[in-house]
């Protein structure tokens, strides 16, 4: 037997004021991101920017896209795809950056040889 239907017109628990507050929070994080990008924090800068970006991403997916309140299956579908996308990015970067070092060296030698 099919499970009971999940009503599409269900109330997800947040009020318009709460959504506005989340929007204000996202704006605040964006301002912090800007500050971090200009602050010259050195080796902390990139991890911090990625962390802030991940928070914004999670807030929009969790609250605005209602994943936090929806069926767990939807979270699993999206999380699986996102994990694959991140893996593809890491694999491509690793492959090309290691191959790239050789190609750049060759290109510079070719330029130097006239």
């Amino acid at each position: 037997m099919a499970h009971s239907a999940e009503p599409m017109e269900q109330q997800h628990g947040l009020s318009p004021m709460q959504y506005l507050a989340i929007g204000a929070g996202l704006t605040l994080i964006t301002i912090v991101e800007l500050w971090v990008s200009y602050s010259g924090l050195g080796s902390l800068q990139i991890p911090l920017l990625l962390f802030l970006s991940a928070i914004k991403f999670a807030v929009v997916v969790g609250w605005f896209m209602h994943l936090r309140f929806d069926h767990r299956l939807l979270t699993q579908v999206f999380a699986a795809s996102l994990t694959l996308a991140i893996l593809i990015t890491i694999v491509l970067l690793t492959l090309y950056w290691s191959a790239d070092a050789d190609s750049i060296r060759g290109y510079r030698e070719w330029l130097a040889s006239g």
């Binding site: 499970h3 009971s4 239907a5 599409m8 017109e9 929806d70 069926h71």
Partner: peptide
């Protein structure tokens, strides 16, 4: 199954268009 809004649900209970 049919969701309240009229859309059909999958056997997992999620609305199929949303899935």
């Amino acid at each position: 199954a049919v969701a309240h809004g009229g859309g059909h649900t999958t056997s997992t209970g999620t609305e199929n268009r949303k899935l």
